[in-house]
């Protein structure tokens, strides 16, 4: 039987935005899928050796907060730091894997991580800052694989 294929575009570089691509990719590999993740725009931050991902309540009215914080207050320096700290603590308390852990599993289990060359150039990302073993490609690279994929996601 041919392995099923999962193609993901990861376009977000926030802590909450990092979970869906790495979580689904690592699980898909465990289920026997062949997986490729194409990192573009802010998603490229997920390829940095040192992840310093944050989550912000600003512009995200759906984010649960211990007390209601009006948008005007959310611009105060330190609030983003606090929200990130709170989210990380909660993830740990609930036994959720860290983004680093899930990314390591993806790398070890052969998920193909592809950096979008155009956005690497656009934002002057330095490929030396990225983890080892990633490749680069463009829209056609993604579409060639996604065209035959059973599941294709834009995150």
């Amino acid at each position: 039987m041919m392995a099923k294929k999962l193609a993901i575009i990861a376009s977000k570089g926030t802590l909450d935005g990092a979970y869906p691509p790495f979580l689904l990719a690592s699980t898909a590999v465990a289920l026997g899928f062949e997986v490729k993740i194409f990192f573009t725009f802010y998603g490229l931050q997920l390829l940095n050796k040192n992840l310093n991902l944050k989550v912000s309540p600003l512009g995200n009215p759906a984010m649960p907060m211990p007390v209601p914080v009006p948008s005007i207050v959310q611009v105060i320096p330190g609030l983003e730091w606090f929200a990130t700290w709170m989210m990380k603590r909660k993830l740990k308390q609930k036994g959720v894997a860290s983004v680093e852990e899930l990314r390591d599993i993806c790398v070890e289990s052969g998920v193909d991580l592809i950096a979008c060359q155009m956005t690497v150039d656009l934002f002057d990302f330095d490929e030396k800052d990225f983890i080892e073993g990633i490749s680069s490609g463009g829209a056609a690279t993604y579409l060639e694989f996604a065209g035959d994929a059973d599941v294709s996601l834009y995150i």
């Binding site: 979580l23 690592s26 699980t27 465990a30 289920l31 609930k94 036994g95 959720v96 894997a97 599993i105």
Partner: peptide, 14 residues
Amino acid sequence: SGLNCPLPVLKARK
């Protein structure tokens, strides 16, 4: 015990 999705599946696979 105590681990959340998707860790039980990943660990079972291993």
